[in-house]
Design a protein around this nucleic acid. Structure first.
Lengths: 136, 136
DNA sequence: CTAATTGCAAAAGTTTTGCAGGACT
DNA sequence: AGTCCTGCAAAACTTTTGCAATTAG
Protein backbone atom coordinates (compact mmCIF):
# COMPACT_ATOMS: atom_id res chain seq x y z
CA UNK A 1 0.00 0.00 0.00
CA UNK A 2 0.94 3.59 0.02
CA UNK A 3 1.72 5.80 2.93
CA UNK A 4 -0.77 8.32 1.66
CA UNK A 5 -3.38 7.13 4.13
CA UNK A 6 -0.91 7.19 6.98
CA UNK A 7 0.19 10.68 6.10
CA UNK A 8 -3.39 11.84 6.02
CA UNK A 9 -4.17 10.27 9.35
CA UNK A 10 -1.02 11.76 10.79
CA UNK A 11 -2.13 15.17 9.64
CA UNK A 12 -5.44 14.77 11.43
CA UNK A 13 -7.56 14.44 8.33
CA UNK A 14 -10.96 13.34 9.52
CA UNK A 15 -11.31 9.84 8.15
CA UNK A 16 -14.56 8.46 6.75
CA UNK A 17 -15.11 5.38 4.67
CA UNK A 18 -15.61 7.57 1.61
CA UNK A 19 -12.39 9.43 2.11
CA UNK A 20 -10.52 6.24 2.77
CA UNK A 21 -11.74 4.77 -0.50
CA UNK A 22 -10.78 7.88 -2.45
CA UNK A 23 -7.30 7.83 -0.94
CA UNK A 24 -6.93 4.12 -1.65
CA UNK A 25 -8.02 4.45 -5.24
CA UNK A 26 -5.60 7.28 -5.75
CA UNK A 27 -2.58 5.66 -4.12
CA UNK A 28 0.25 4.39 -6.26
CA UNK A 29 2.74 5.50 -8.86
CA UNK A 30 1.90 6.78 -12.29
CA UNK A 31 -1.69 7.33 -11.30
CA UNK A 32 -3.37 10.21 -13.09
CA UNK A 33 -7.09 9.74 -12.80
CA UNK A 34 -9.86 12.19 -13.55
CA UNK A 35 -12.42 12.91 -10.86
CA UNK A 36 -14.89 10.79 -12.72
CA UNK A 37 -12.49 7.86 -12.95
CA UNK A 38 -11.81 8.13 -9.25
CA UNK A 39 -15.53 8.05 -8.64
CA UNK A 40 -16.02 5.03 -10.88
CA UNK A 41 -13.31 3.10 -9.06
CA UNK A 42 -14.55 4.24 -5.68
CA UNK A 43 -18.05 3.06 -6.46
CA UNK A 44 -16.74 -0.46 -6.94
CA UNK A 45 -15.75 -0.54 -3.31
CA UNK A 46 -18.41 1.69 -1.85
CA UNK A 47 -21.45 1.73 -4.11
CA UNK A 48 -23.22 4.68 -2.52
CA UNK A 49 -20.38 7.17 -2.70
CA UNK A 50 -21.41 10.33 -4.50
CA UNK A 51 -19.57 12.39 -7.04
CA UNK A 52 -19.81 15.46 -4.81
CA UNK A 53 -17.98 13.64 -2.05
CA UNK A 54 -15.25 12.59 -4.43
CA UNK A 55 -14.85 16.19 -5.54
CA UNK A 56 -14.75 17.34 -1.95
CA UNK A 57 -12.09 14.82 -1.02
CA UNK A 58 -9.97 15.54 -4.07
CA UNK A 59 -10.17 19.26 -3.46
CA UNK A 60 -8.96 18.83 0.09
CA UNK A 61 -6.16 16.52 -0.86
CA UNK A 62 -4.97 19.17 -3.29
CA UNK A 63 -5.22 21.84 -0.60
CA UNK A 64 -3.24 19.64 1.75
CA UNK A 65 -0.58 19.28 -0.89
CA UNK A 66 -0.92 15.51 -0.94
CA UNK A 67 -2.22 15.38 -4.47
CA UNK A 68 -1.35 17.44 -7.52
CA UNK A 69 -3.87 18.70 -10.00
CA UNK A 70 -2.78 18.24 -13.60
CA UNK A 71 -4.53 20.04 -16.42
CA UNK A 72 -4.05 18.08 -19.59
CA UNK A 73 -5.62 20.78 -21.73
CA UNK A 74 -8.08 18.12 -22.62
CA UNK A 75 -11.28 17.91 -20.68
CA UNK A 76 -11.20 16.98 -17.07
CA UNK A 77 -8.41 17.65 -14.62
CA UNK A 78 -6.34 14.70 -13.52
CA UNK A 79 -5.17 13.96 -10.00
CA UNK A 80 -1.64 12.81 -9.25
CA UNK A 81 -0.91 11.43 -5.78
CA UNK A 82 2.82 11.46 -6.38
CA UNK A 83 3.20 14.82 -4.70
CA UNK A 84 6.23 14.02 -2.59
CA UNK A 85 8.48 12.98 -5.44
CA UNK A 86 9.32 15.94 -7.64
CA UNK A 87 8.64 15.07 -11.24
CA UNK A 88 7.35 16.41 -14.51
CA UNK A 89 4.68 15.28 -16.89
CA UNK A 90 4.69 13.96 -20.39
CA UNK A 91 1.23 14.52 -21.84
CA UNK A 92 -0.24 13.08 -25.02
CA UNK A 93 -1.92 15.88 -26.95
CA UNK A 94 -4.23 13.39 -28.56
CA UNK A 95 -5.61 11.15 -25.83
CA UNK A 96 -4.58 13.05 -22.72
CA UNK A 97 -2.54 10.21 -21.22
CA UNK A 98 -0.02 11.39 -18.64
CA UNK A 99 3.34 9.83 -17.78
CA UNK A 100 5.63 10.87 -15.00
CA UNK A 101 9.19 11.73 -15.96
CA UNK A 102 11.96 12.58 -13.57
CA UNK A 103 14.34 15.50 -13.27
CA UNK A 104 17.29 14.89 -15.52
CA UNK A 105 20.20 16.47 -13.74
CA UNK A 106 20.58 19.88 -15.30
CA UNK A 107 17.16 21.37 -15.21
CA UNK A 108 17.27 25.09 -14.98
CA UNK A 109 14.02 26.94 -14.96
CA UNK A 110 14.29 29.57 -12.30
CA UNK A 111 12.55 32.84 -12.86
CA UNK A 112 14.76 35.80 -11.91
CA UNK A 113 13.25 38.40 -9.62
CA UNK A 114 13.08 41.06 -12.31
CA UNK A 115 10.88 38.78 -14.38
CA UNK A 116 8.34 38.15 -11.66
CA UNK A 117 6.28 41.30 -11.98
CA UNK A 118 5.39 41.26 -8.33
CA UNK A 119 4.16 37.68 -8.37
CA UNK A 120 5.04 35.30 -5.58
CA UNK A 121 6.23 32.24 -7.48
CA UNK A 122 5.64 29.07 -5.54
CA UNK A 123 5.82 26.43 -8.19
CA UNK A 124 7.49 25.77 -11.50
CA UNK A 125 5.74 23.31 -13.69
CA UNK A 126 7.31 21.68 -16.73
CA UNK A 127 5.16 19.77 -19.15
CA UNK A 128 6.34 17.91 -22.22
CA UNK A 129 3.68 17.59 -24.88
CA UNK A 130 3.57 15.25 -27.80
CA UNK A 131 2.05 12.02 -28.98
CA UNK A 132 2.12 8.78 -27.06
CA UNK A 133 3.20 5.55 -28.81
CA UNK A 134 -0.41 4.49 -29.25
CA UNK A 135 -1.60 7.72 -30.84
CA UNK A 136 1.48 8.29 -33.03
CA UNK B 1 -1.98 46.33 -35.61
CA UNK B 2 -0.72 42.84 -35.65
CA UNK B 3 0.40 40.72 -38.53
CA UNK B 4 -1.83 37.90 -37.31
CA UNK B 5 -4.45 38.72 -39.92
CA UNK B 6 -1.87 38.90 -42.66
CA UNK B 7 -0.37 35.60 -41.66
CA UNK B 8 -3.80 34.01 -41.68
CA UNK B 9 -4.61 35.41 -45.08
CA UNK B 10 -1.26 34.28 -46.37
CA UNK B 11 -1.98 30.78 -45.17
CA UNK B 12 -5.23 30.74 -47.09
CA UNK B 13 -7.49 30.87 -44.07
CA UNK B 14 -10.94 31.52 -45.42
CA UNK B 15 -11.79 35.00 -44.19
CA UNK B 16 -15.22 36.01 -42.97
CA UNK B 17 -16.28 39.02 -40.97
CA UNK B 18 -16.62 36.84 -37.89
CA UNK B 19 -13.16 35.38 -38.20
CA UNK B 20 -11.68 38.76 -38.87
CA UNK B 21 -13.21 40.13 -35.70
CA UNK B 22 -11.96 37.21 -33.64
CA UNK B 23 -8.45 37.66 -34.98
CA UNK B 24 -8.56 41.39 -34.36
CA UNK B 25 -9.78 41.00 -30.81
CA UNK B 26 -7.04 38.51 -30.12
CA UNK B 27 -4.18 40.45 -31.66
CA UNK B 28 -1.63 42.09 -29.44
CA UNK B 29 0.87 41.35 -26.72
CA UNK B 30 0.04 40.03 -23.30
CA UNK B 31 -3.43 39.01 -24.43
CA UNK B 32 -4.82 35.97 -22.66
CA UNK B 33 -8.55 36.01 -23.12
CA UNK B 34 -11.04 33.25 -22.42
CA UNK B 35 -13.37 32.16 -25.20
CA UNK B 36 -16.15 34.01 -23.48
CA UNK B 37 -14.14 37.20 -23.23
CA UNK B 38 -13.27 36.95 -26.90
CA UNK B 39 -16.94 36.56 -27.64
CA UNK B 40 -17.88 39.54 -25.50
CA UNK B 41 -15.35 41.76 -27.26
CA UNK B 42 -16.30 40.41 -30.66
CA UNK B 43 -19.96 41.18 -30.04
CA UNK B 44 -19.10 44.84 -29.60
CA UNK B 45 -17.98 44.97 -33.18
CA UNK B 46 -20.26 42.41 -34.70
CA UNK B 47 -23.38 42.05 -32.55
CA UNK B 48 -24.70 38.89 -34.14
CA UNK B 49 -21.59 36.75 -33.79
CA UNK B 50 -22.31 33.52 -31.96
CA UNK B 51 -20.37 31.72 -29.31
CA UNK B 52 -20.12 28.62 -31.49
CA UNK B 53 -18.41 30.59 -34.20
CA UNK B 54 -15.94 32.01 -31.73
CA UNK B 55 -15.15 28.51 -30.51
CA UNK B 56 -14.76 27.32 -34.08
CA UNK B 57 -12.38 30.11 -34.95
CA UNK B 58 -10.33 29.72 -31.80
CA UNK B 59 -10.05 25.99 -32.33
CA UNK B 60 -8.75 26.50 -35.82
CA UNK B 61 -6.28 29.15 -34.82
CA UNK B 62 -4.90 26.72 -32.28
CA UNK B 63 -4.71 23.97 -34.91
CA UNK B 64 -2.90 26.34 -37.23
CA UNK B 65 -0.41 27.08 -34.51
CA UNK B 66 -1.20 30.78 -34.55
CA UNK B 67 -2.66 30.83 -31.08
CA UNK B 68 -1.68 28.94 -27.96
CA UNK B 69 -4.16 27.43 -25.56
CA UNK B 70 -3.31 28.06 -21.93
CA UNK B 71 -4.97 26.12 -19.15
CA UNK B 72 -4.90 28.13 -16.03
CA UNK B 73 -6.14 25.30 -13.86
CA UNK B 74 -8.95 27.63 -13.06
CA UNK B 75 -12.03 27.55 -15.18
CA UNK B 76 -11.91 28.39 -18.83
CA UNK B 77 -8.96 28.02 -21.15
CA UNK B 78 -7.24 31.18 -22.25
CA UNK B 79 -6.00 31.99 -25.73
CA UNK B 80 -2.61 33.54 -26.37
CA UNK B 81 -1.90 34.95 -29.84
CA UNK B 82 1.77 35.40 -29.08
CA UNK B 83 2.64 32.07 -30.67
CA UNK B 84 5.62 33.21 -32.67
CA UNK B 85 7.60 34.58 -29.77
CA UNK B 86 8.74 31.78 -27.49
CA UNK B 87 7.77 32.59 -23.94
CA UNK B 88 6.51 31.12 -20.74
CA UNK B 89 3.61 31.90 -18.49
CA UNK B 90 3.28 33.20 -15.01
CA UNK B 91 -0.15 32.21 -13.73
CA UNK B 92 -1.94 33.44 -10.63
CA UNK B 93 -3.36 30.45 -8.77
CA UNK B 94 -6.03 32.64 -7.29
CA UNK B 95 -7.55 34.69 -10.07
CA UNK B 96 -6.14 32.97 -13.14
CA UNK B 97 -4.40 36.03 -14.53
CA UNK B 98 -1.63 35.18 -16.97
CA UNK B 99 1.52 37.15 -17.70
CA UNK B 100 4.08 36.39 -20.36
CA UNK B 101 7.66 36.01 -19.22
CA UNK B 102 10.63 35.56 -21.50
CA UNK B 103 13.39 33.00 -21.72
CA UNK B 104 16.11 33.93 -19.31
CA UNK B 105 19.24 32.81 -21.08
CA UNK B 106 20.00 29.46 -19.55
CA UNK B 107 16.83 27.50 -19.69
CA UNK B 108 17.49 23.82 -19.89
CA UNK B 109 14.52 21.56 -20.00
CA UNK B 110 15.24 18.96 -22.60
CA UNK B 111 13.93 15.48 -22.10
CA UNK B 112 16.55 12.82 -22.93
CA UNK B 113 15.49 10.05 -25.28
CA UNK B 114 15.54 7.39 -22.58
CA UNK B 115 12.95 9.36 -20.63
CA UNK B 116 10.50 9.69 -23.49
CA UNK B 117 8.82 6.31 -23.24
CA UNK B 118 8.12 6.22 -26.94
CA UNK B 119 6.46 9.62 -26.96
CA UNK B 120 7.17 12.10 -29.73
CA UNK B 121 7.87 15.27 -27.79
CA UNK B 122 6.98 18.38 -29.75
CA UNK B 123 6.69 21.01 -27.11
CA UNK B 124 8.09 21.89 -23.72
CA UNK B 125 5.90 24.09 -21.64
CA UNK B 126 7.07 25.89 -18.52
CA UNK B 127 4.56 27.51 -16.22
CA UNK B 128 5.33 29.49 -13.09
CA UNK B 129 2.52 29.45 -10.58
CA UNK B 130 1.97 31.73 -7.67
CA UNK B 131 0.01 34.76 -6.58
CA UNK B 132 -0.23 37.99 -8.49
CA UNK B 133 0.35 41.31 -6.68
CA UNK B 134 -3.38 41.92 -6.41
CA UNK B 135 -4.22 38.55 -4.87
CA UNK B 136 -1.22 38.37 -2.54
C1' DC C 1 -22.32 15.83 21.93
C1' DT C 2 -20.76 18.88 18.31
C1' DA C 3 -18.91 20.03 14.28
C1' DA C 4 -17.66 18.15 10.06
C1' DT C 5 -19.01 15.18 6.18
C1' DT C 6 -22.21 12.94 3.05
C1' DG C 7 -25.81 12.31 -0.59
C1' DC C 8 -28.99 14.10 -3.51
C1' DA C 9 -30.53 16.78 -6.92
C1' DA C 10 -30.36 20.93 -9.09
C1' DA C 11 -27.54 24.66 -11.04
C1' DA C 12 -23.61 26.79 -12.99
C1' DG C 13 -19.90 27.20 -16.25
C1' DT C 14 -17.59 25.67 -20.40
C1' DT C 15 -17.48 23.55 -24.80
C1' DT C 16 -19.50 20.71 -28.53
C1' DT C 17 -22.90 19.36 -31.95
C1' DG C 18 -26.57 19.01 -35.67
C1' DC C 19 -28.48 21.19 -39.16
C1' DA C 20 -30.67 24.65 -42.20
C1' DG C 21 -29.44 28.85 -44.34
C1' DG C 22 -25.84 32.04 -45.86
C1' DA C 23 -21.28 33.63 -47.40
C1' DC C 24 -16.53 33.19 -49.48
C1' DT C 25 -13.55 32.10 -53.36
C1' DA D 1 -21.38 26.73 -58.17
C1' DG D 2 -19.59 24.36 -54.62
C1' DT D 3 -17.74 24.13 -50.35
C1' DC D 4 -17.05 25.99 -46.18
C1' DC D 5 -18.87 28.93 -42.37
C1' DT D 6 -22.47 30.73 -39.30
C1' DG D 7 -26.24 30.95 -36.01
C1' DC D 8 -29.36 28.84 -33.10
C1' DA D 9 -30.63 26.03 -29.67
C1' DA D 10 -30.04 21.97 -27.39
C1' DA D 11 -26.95 18.67 -25.39
C1' DA D 12 -22.71 17.02 -23.24
C1' DC D 13 -19.38 17.43 -19.72
C1' DT D 14 -17.20 18.91 -15.63
C1' DT D 15 -17.60 20.98 -11.28
C1' DT D 16 -20.08 23.47 -7.59
C1' DT D 17 -23.75 24.33 -4.28
C1' DG D 18 -27.58 24.11 -0.70
C1' DC D 19 -29.47 21.57 2.68
C1' DA D 20 -31.22 17.80 5.56
C1' DA D 21 -29.53 13.53 7.45
C1' DT D 22 -25.57 11.03 9.13
C1' DT D 23 -21.17 10.17 11.33
C1' DA D 24 -16.39 10.70 13.30
C1' DG D 25 -13.82 12.02 17.23
Amino acid sequence: MSDLLERLRGRGWRMTSQRRVVAEVLAGDHVHLTADEVHALAVQRLPEISRATVYNALGELVLLGEVIEVSTDGRAKRYDPNAHHPHQHLVCSQCGTVRDVHPTGNLLADLPAEERFGFTVSQVEITYRGLCPTCA
